[in-house]
Design a protein around this nucleic acid. Sequence first.
DNA 1: AGGTGTGAAACAGTTCACAGCC
DNA 2: GGCTGTGAACTGTTTCACACCT
Lengths: 243, 243
Amino acid sequence: MPKRVQPRSPDGMQLGGLLVFGLLANSYIVPLVKMERIPRATVNRLPLYLRALESLPSDQGTVSSRELAELIKENSAKVRKDLSFLGTYGVRGVGYNVENLRFRIRRDLGLTRIWPVIIVGAGNLGSALAKYGGFDASGFTIVGIYDNDPEKIGTTIGNLTVRSMGSLRRDAQERNVEIGMITTPVPAAQQVAEQLADAGFKSILNFAPMVLRVSPEVEIRRVDLSTELQILGYYVQQSLAEG
Amino acid sequence: MPKRVQPRSPDGMQLGGLLVFGLLANSYIVPLVKMERIPRATVNRLPLYLRALESLPSDQGTVSSRELAELIKENSAKVRKDLSFLGTYGVRGVGYNVENLRFRIRRDLGLTRIWPVIIVGAGNLGSALAKYGGFDASGFTIVGIYDNDPEKIGTTIGNLTVRSMGSLRRDAQERNVEIGMITTPVPAAQQVAEQLADAGFKSILNFAPMVLRVSPEVEIRRVDLSTELQILGYYVQQSLAEG
DNA sequence: AGGTGTGAAACAGTTCACAGCC
DNA sequence: GGCTGTGAACTGTTTCACACCT
């Protein structure tokens, strides 16, 4: 018998990670239950669901967990569990409303706004990312690229001009940038990470093949190609060993 | 009281995923226990351990689990558990032999050889990867880059000439290439994946922002920048909500 | 004393299976 | 009949805590 906290109960509203139940007579806000966070594993799949939903024909009104599961190569039970964490209502016997679900996921991912992002490191990879047009479609826009090489500063990449590290802090604060990508060589990466943390960045996408160490309130994700290849290598070797 | 199978027991040897105990008098090989696989979570960390080990000063003979833990930002219990799956012996009160541990991890990851890798998609990202020198240090070497755009075929990127998709299959088989990276736009990616699978590739590193569907014996890893940003976005938003 | 190896506990994530609603 | 929502079971991963070795 379902006894869990009702997301969106009649007089409850979700607010900043707390489930708040009503304003009492004397104006106390009473947080009854700490709202359960969406599990990390689920958060990691939300972008995939969103993409799947966006790939559906525009006249498709509803979608079943099985359909979604096929699109992201998972099973339908997982999809249903995941979506249940959003407090989204599917309709039994019918499925999920595509439009509504898309909206919910966009909202939970914070995609109701466009996030400005900067790149530090104007080498091959940084330049390629600066020119890559695909971010805008996902809700992000590259607003700056930085380097400390005087040869590179002032040059143009895509529609951006490479700027000096010295101007990073002020630029970022002016434009409210909170997400940065590090595409420098390894020796520079740690220092850059500290500069970003210092400038108030909240999250970092790190392409330098190393583990960065900054204060834990900065969320860091690593995109580590060598590591990915080595992991693939393990499984290739494994498949050989098994014949 | 430890009663687990002894890795590297005096008369046992590890062979193709089986722990084989001794050759009996009449030449029967007796596989007593199916060798426990290294857990995925551990495999994913092996490249990090390797890098950490390689970053140690060359005169450092041993390393403790705590030291390694700091280098990869994990805790020491996890490090010890992970390393125990390799059947590696640390020495109580001392730590792990750096040289030996490095060798074991390289061997388990299959890095005793250099793996040839090809890239499909000679756009910004593919070109940047082709020029990126960092793979060689990790045991991989880019031996070809492919595209189906006649404008690109024949042009030079780094020290590679872009070749046509038509030559992929034969090239790969001649050179025994089993790992491919897909850096094409989304619409081409699925078809390319099928071509790779068909040409006998064992694993694919997919940079196209979509979920590929090929037969399950092909190991696929996704490097999905938009998705990474969206995940970061979630946590940035979350941190705002909490104040 | 210092540090590994590892059962056992705790936690996280996945899958099952089915009641309940359309 | 179809499909969601979700407890419960299960599987995988992390952490604890301590016996044991050097």
